[in-house]
Simulated assay, not measured.
Amino acid sequence: MPSVLEDMAADAVTATELLVVWQQPSSRAMIPVGVLAFDGRLYTFEYLPNVAEIDEFRPLLGFRDFTVTYESDELFPLFHERVLDPTRPDFTRVLDDLKIDPASATPWEQLVRSGGSSEGDTLQVTPLPREEAGGGWTCTALVAGVRYLARKSIATADGVTRIYTADELESLLDRLSAGQVLRVVAEVGNEYNSEAQVLFTEQQEPVGYLPDWLAKLTAPCLTNGSTLHAVIDRVNDTSAGWHLRVLVTLHADEPFDQLRDRINSTTRSA
Rank of each mutant, 00 (worst) to 15 (best):
T140W: 06
S153G: 15
L173R: 11
E254Y: 06
N236S: 10
I54Q: 12
E170W: 14
S117L: 04
F66M: 10
D90A: 10
E191W: 04
T16R: 15
R151E: 07
M8P: 08
R64D: 14
Y192F: 06
A166M: 02
V185P: 09
L98P: 12
F66R: 01
L172F: 10
E254C: 09
W108H: 02
V51S: 13
T106M: 03
C221H: 11
A166P: 11
P25R: 00
S118V: 10
L173T: 08
D101A: 11
D121A: 15
P77Y: 05
G120L: 09
V68P: 06
R260N: 10
A144L: 07
L78V: 09
P25M: 01
L123W: 02
Q24A: 07
L259R: 04
S114C: 11
L182C: 09
L214N: 07
L123H: 07
R147S: 15
G40W: 02
R234L: 00
E56H: 10
S239A: 12
L172P: 09
I263G: 06
Q197S: 14
L36R: 00
F200N: 04
E131L: 13
S265I: 05
P49F: 10
V13N: 08
V35N: 03
E81G: 12
S171I: 13
V20H: 03
A219Y: 06
M30H: 10
A12N: 14
D7Q: 15
A166I: 01
G40R: 05
G135M: 01
T238L: 08
D261T: 06
D90S: 13
G116C: 06
V185D: 05
R130H: 14
R130C: 14
R113F: 13
S239C: 04
I100V: 14
G120H: 07
H251Y: 08
G225W: 02
L123V: 08
G145K: 05
L98K: 11
P32M: 01
W108P: 03
R245V: 00
G208W: 01
E46W: 00
E131F: 06
R162L: 06
L176M: 05
E170T: 08
D96G: 14
H251S: 12
F76N: 03
R82Q: 11
L78K: 02
R234W: 00
L111D: 07
T44E: 02
D167G: 11
V143P: 08
P206S: 07
A133H: 10
A144Y: 10
V143N: 04
L228R: 11
